[in-house]
Design a protein around this nucleic acid. Structure first.
Lengths: 326, 326
DNA sequence: GTGAAAGCGCTAACAT
DNA sequence: ATGTTAGCGCTTTCAC
């Protein structure tokens, strides 16, 4: 591996000069700079980012913690993060927590060791106060209970209200909610939006109409089967994400029931596959790619800037996309 | 940030001893080790991995280069890579090349600078010989033309043959191929498998039946529309991946034609959404998750081992999953 | 404008 | 068994 010293030897200057030339320090002679830059190009010299990181205490690296890369919602986010990272010179560690708290925690310590400049996280548990021990800069893709950090997310409550009100306006009054893990913020807020919409229209909620599982398709399938098996099955279901909605649709079809005639279904996220002609899922859309991009840019601001940009809460507007399942 | 020297001071030993204790060197006194380990735990001390990387010339970090994280095929791979990386103590850089050669090349230099121990790559272009300038260890998720590196992939030709032969046995003789970028290995091999199967059954291929675009859904839509518009539309289509198949299905439906009655469709990959009840796409399955895991483990072997494991070619068996679109 | 030298946090060879 | 020291590749004072 070619080092800065090797290059300095070839150029006949001290390696400090090479460093200055390559880092565009103004004090270096224009001619020597050109010579050095040319030489570096010819030799294919690349500064060792690890060594740079050690002295500069900045690694130009961030961590992206998400629960499930397999849910098409997250790849969109990741793509946004990654595109923006690329443009700003950062590289991103992919940390798929797999809905495991242990793994989330473990990743945090690993990322700290690897000296990332910051993290973007869609958390799966409540960090309490331990969090700031681990990272200096972070942006959350979720509501977050401690004020110190920036978060960017869509208005989950509003989105859910829109979805449920739409169903109510369509004449439904037996509307069920199928959700993911109870403790996940997104789930709580979407449940709350559902409850508020029902309350605003003086609609009672049958307790069995509120189901919680996890955010995967199979879980939607299971919960919907339960709903279908109860004495008074709902005439509509609001699912806390599209994967759950897809699972619910499957259960409904297996029962021989028609969508939306017998049961209407509305999802959340608007993953790409929701728009397939065969699916045509009505759902609450999130600007996933833009959220990813924004998260990264906000994080960079925070890394660069200092305290004044902390504690920003960026709330984006959801959009109800009406298709054929409702 | 707490450093090893701070810790040494607190423990009342030299920092070399701390290093030895924490790295389980045998020569250190069992009692001092326990004391140090305890202290480190209490203080929440984590060794700086950047500093470790600099001296050990090993970063416990790898790069994963894929063309499109948005295609559900790749998240499955990524999850496999990531799970295995986690178990073996590695962290992975997500490098989404976005089908851009420039970005792929750029990532290679960035990863080199960041001193990754190796890379796993689903390449989008032919590196010629420049490649070994950049990385020491690599495994390809694709066929690869230069022998020095390990590659792991399924038998694309065989898989395509299986798919096309299945269509032929179903009585089809006007079978079209819609593919991705012409120069991508996967595409070439799948095209070849298609051609071989046709030839083996003495079936002529109408040149317009071979369409190439990119590997995205919209491209499948466009290509299928073209096929539908030609004088003698095919009675079956073999798509080089599931996204293309999904796009083709959309075009067929828009024409008011029935699947599989009027036109049969077969895809490749078996992404999760191919199995949705509403889709039920017949497709050639790849063991995506296992491929990812295997790729990572093979890479580690290579990093650790040396030359003897280079140039392994691991060819996995595809499986034809017959569903409702054929 | 350039060189010499210190030091980032750690490991490992060399002493003791 | 433990301490001392060199050095990984780089940036950044501090001299000149």
């Amino acid at each position: 591996m070619l080092t800065i010293k090797d290059l300095a030897k070839k150029a006949g200057v001290s390696y400090a000069t090479v460093s200055r030339a390559l880092n565009n320090h103004p004090e270096v002679n224009e001619e020597t700079r050109r010579k050095i830059v040319k030489l570096a190009g010819d030799c294919g010299y690349r500064p060792n980012a690890i060594a740079q990181g050690l002295v500069k205490k900045e690694t130009k690296t961030i961590g992206l913690l998400i629960p499930d890369i397999t849910n098409p919602f997250y790849p969109e986010i990741a793509r946004g993060v990654e595109d923006a990272a690329n443009e700003t010179g950062y590289t991103v560690f992919l940390c798929n927590t797999n809905w495991s708290v242990e793994r989330e925690l473990n990743y945090l310590t690993v990322l700290k060791q690897k000296q990332v400049d910051g993290i973007i996280i869609a958390p799966i548990h409540d960090f309490k106060d331990h969090f700031d021990l681990w990272v200096k800069s972070a942006v959350f893709i979720s509501r977050v209970n401690f004020p110190k950090y920036t978060s960017i997310l869509i208005d989950n409550i509003r989105g859910s209200q829109m979805a449920v009100e739409y169903l109510i306006n369509k004449g439904h009054c037996h509307i069920a909610f199928i959700g993911g893990q109870k403790h996940i913020w997104d789930n709580q807020d979407r449940l709350q939006g559902y409850q508020q919409a029902m309350a605003m229209h003086n609609l009672a909620i049958n307790p069995v109409y509120i189901q919680n599982g996890d955010f995967k398709r199979e879980s939607g399938h299971v919960m919907m089967k339960k709903l279908l098996a109860c004495e008074a099955p709902p005439s509509a279901v609001f699912a806390a994400n599209d994967l759950l909605a897809l699972g619910a649709i499957q259960a409904i079809n297996e029962q021989g029931l028609a969508i939306p005639k017998d049961i209407a279904v509305v999802g959340f996220d608007d993953i790409e596959f929701a728009s397939l002609p065969e699916i045509q899922l009505t759902t609450v859309a999130q600007p996933k790619y833009d959220m990813g991009k924004l998260a990264l840019l906000t994080l960079i601001d925070q890394i660069k800037g200092g305290d004044d940009i902390l504690n920003k809460k960026i709330l984006l507007e959801p959009e109800l996309v009406i298709r054929k399942t409702s």
